[in-house]
Nucleic acid binder design. Structure first.
Length: 107
DNA sequence: ACAGTGACTACAT
DNA sequence: AATGTAGCCACTG
């Protein structure tokens, strides 16, 4: 078993283009449903560790871009997502339920 | 070393 | 339906 963070990054890198997932889904896929916070922390640390990580494809369970302020610019996350064809309105992903990618189904 | 905090979520009031 | 509490654990002051 790898480190929790490593597994988180592994899954995030697997998120397909134009799809999104949630912190909780990742945590659950790792067998640690209650550790969803750690996933967010892992994302925060990923800046230095894995700069290429598509962290913009990870949102909270409501499809809200809670972490947008942690990106380089205020609109970076929105831009990256809309660039992949994902519609963002008021920091919320439109059709989130449709775009949701469940890591558990892929593992 | 200790306490506060945070890119979260589920469960209880 | 809306708030409050609990659990996770690494990082920072």
């Amino acid at each position: 078993m790898k480190d929790f963070y490593s597994k988180v990054y592994e899954i995030v890198e697997l998120i397909p283009y134009g799809r999104v997932t949630t912190y909780g889904a990742i945590a659950e896929a790792l067998g640690a449903r209650k550790s969803s916070r750690l996933v967010g922390i892992a994302m925060n640390l990923s800046h230095e560790l894995v700069p290429n990580l598509p962290a913009h494809r990870v949102v909270n369970r409501n499809g809200v871009l809670t972490g947008k302020h942690h990106f380089i610019g205020a609109n970076t996350m929105e831009n990256l997502l809309s660039n992949e064809g994902i519609e963002i309105v008021d920091d919320v992903i439109k059709n989130f339920k449709l775009l949701f990618w469940n890591p558990r189904e892929e593992l």
